[in-house]
Simulated assay, not measured.
Amino acid sequence: MQAIGYNGCDFIEFEKPLENPAGQDLLVEIKAISINPIDTKVKQTITKDSAVKILGYDACGVVRAVGEEASIFKVGDEVFYAGDVTRDGSNATHQLVDERIVGRKPKSLNFEQAAALPLTSITAWESLFDRLKITPKDKNKTLLLIGAAGGVGSMAIQFSKQIISMNVIATASRPESKAWCKQMGADTVLDHQQLAKQFKQQSLTAPDYILCMGVPDDYLEQMVDLIAPQGCICLLANTQKSYDLNLLKAKSITLVWEMMFTRSMFQTTDLIKQHQLLNKVSDLIDQQQIVSIATQQLSPINIDNITKAHQLIEQGDMIGKLVICEQHL
């Protein structure tokens, strides 16, 4: 098989033996991939002394072989998934992946449209329903999404509106990103800064839940100030400094984290939940309740386009998702 890896300095193309799947693994022929901020963060940890790393944490393709214990999928099935950060990624012609973190590709989407969905869908779904523990009973409550125009925010808006019917307040900085959040279904869109002032000016209800997609350091004090008593905050990105947790005490605030690779990294007993939620996302797409968030497309999958995709992601102003399609390495 052909693969594109990162050697601590550049992306390089190389040949790698094609392995047969074992256990519950699938061998997937990759048709399209998507690049995420996690790709650029993992890339930063790779040095010239490190082994070459195959990045890529979103893929859509066709099952070409199955392990002896695999029972969910069969050869020929079209699938989508985010993969496992501890294993080789999807910047290759083929990839081995545990079927328990793989979903059925939406029938109504092509490969590139579907490739935009897995990582952001899993992250948004787990943030809302596993970490913040939002249920249909919360339909009259308010959710604040900070930095909502990117991939995770785009899916979180759709899930919270289409599944729960919550009051959704999103933040964005540019006119085009604000328009995107509205298009996804946000009830109100604010600027990132001076949130408390905007809430007061617009007589907005204090959020019961906050999902922060940005760097927490930029927003923690604002979130503590804004959130309703007994509210819950979910963070995705690492903090850059230490904080006094006593800030959370007066309002009895719950603070939780979401890391979508936790289940696969630690082989948790509920690993199958990622398969189930991806299938649910596939159903929601095919029922036209939610839409793909692919906004930019490159082709073919090669070093130049993967490099370009990383550069675009590193600018930090992506709206929706960037996908790369066609398997011509």
Results as ranks from 00 to 15, higher is better:
Ala3Thr: 11
Tyr6Gly: 09
Ile12Cys: 10
Glu13Gly: 08
Asn20Thr: 12
Asn20Gln: 13
Asp25Val: 03
Ile33His: 05
Ser34Thr: 02
Asn36Arg: 11
Ile38Arg: 00
Gln44Phe: 11
Lys48Phe: 09
Lys53Ile: 03
Ile72Gly: 02
Asp84Lys: 02
Thr86Lys: 11
Ala92Phe: 11
Arg100Asn: 08
Arg100Tyr: 09
Arg104Leu: 06
Arg104Met: 11
Leu109His: 05
Ala114Glu: 04
Leu117Thr: 07
Ser121Lys: 06
Ala124Gln: 13
Ala124Glu: 05
Leu128Glu: 05
Thr142Leu: 06
Ile146Ala: 06
Ile146Trp: 01
Ser154Gln: 01
Met155Asn: 01
Ala179His: 08
Trp180Met: 10
Trp180Ile: 12
Cys181Gly: 13
Lys182Ser: 14
Val189Arg: 02
Gln194Gly: 05
Leu195Gln: 09
Ala196Val: 12
Gln202Trp: 10
Thr205Gln: 07
Thr205Tyr: 04
Ile210Ala: 03
Gly214Asp: 13
Val215Pro: 05
Leu220Gln: 01
Gln222Met: 11
Met223Ala: 09
Ile233Asp: 00
Leu236Asp: 05
Lys241Ile: 15
Ser242Asp: 15
Tyr243Lys: 15
Asp244Glu: 14
Asn246Thr: 15
Ser252Asn: 15
Trp257Arg: 15
Leu271His: 14
Lys273Asn: 13
Asp286Met: 08
Ser292Cys: 13
Ile293Gln: 01
Gln296Asn: 01
Gln297Trp: 03
Pro300Ser: 01
Asn305His: 11
Glu326Val: 13
